[in-house]
Amino acid sequence: MIILIWTIQLILTPVVSPLCIGIIKKVKARLQNRRGASIFQPYKDLWKLLHKDEVISSNASWIFYYAPFIIFAVTIVVGASIPLFAAFLNNTLTGDMLVIVYALAIGAFFLALAGMDTGGAFGGFGSSREMTLSALAEGGLIFSLLTVALISGSTNLFAISSSGVFAQDQHFLSALLALCGFFIVLLAETGRFPYDNPDTHLELTMIHEAIILEYSGKRLALMEWASANKLLIFIALGVNLFFPLGLADNGGVDAILIGMAAFMVKIFICCLIIALIESSMAKFRFFRLPDLLLVSFILNVVALSLIQ
């Protein structure tokens, strides 16, 4: 039974992540008065891409060839190390918050290198902007996770999700501020509005899209899937660290089922919020984004200082 639970933990992230993308696109389409594609369309897109031929630039080196695999594997490892539906799986090996942050940084590292590898103008600039935002977002991310860690008394993500951070009244304001800071960083790291426009491929608006411009076929599938995984990881972190309702605290079948159902509901709500935000605001000009990330950092610092 425990093996089944662990298997689900391992494969849940890659299995569910295209669904998140699909939900967001569907909601946005509905808000734009269109019917929109089915929420399972991203799965079909991935299937199609995995079966296509590839064209690879002659300038590319082994970094370009292997980066999608490395990035995807990193997201799988991170996805398996965070609390998704079960809080009792005590992962003291890789469940530390700093491990998660820096493991995702490996992904960003290879993504940026892959963007530079082909020597195209778009890729280079995409890498530059991606790294700039990632560098500035890391401060906010570490500090928001630190705030919840200090409220719960451990930096292990499973331990944080076991103890509810909103449950303790004296830390309510800190948790709220940390939530706001975390949400801002979530939008930055996953390349959503107002940082990046995931729908277009114009060089004025793209950061992540610019980097994967040169990819095709199965590698493109892996890159898109990895970015979906990252979105799911951040959403899962946000909902499970701050609102751990319904997380399974024992290995019983009903607890697991409730956990998974709660997880899906929370994901849906979060995707809805993201889609609403994307439909109601425009993307910011690039040099306004560091100010936003600084706001996130300051919110988290204030949250930290409020913890006695």
């Binding site: 300038n59 080196s61 970094i63 820096y102 940084a105 960003a108 590292f109 940026a112 290198l113 530079m116 590898d117 082909t118 020597g119 280079g124 890498s127 530059s128 790294m131 700039t132 990632s134 560098a135 500035l136 977002a137 890391e138 401060g139 570490i142 500090f143």
Partner: peptide, 23 residues
């Protein structure tokens, strides 16, 4: 320290990328 980690990563993407990658 948090910002330093991120900025160091940026700097080494730049260093490695400009030196070894592309044309």
């Amino acid at each position: 320290l948090a910002f330093t980690g991120g900025l160091a990563l940026t700097c080494f993407v730049k260093a490695f990328g400009a030196t070894f990658l592309a044309r």
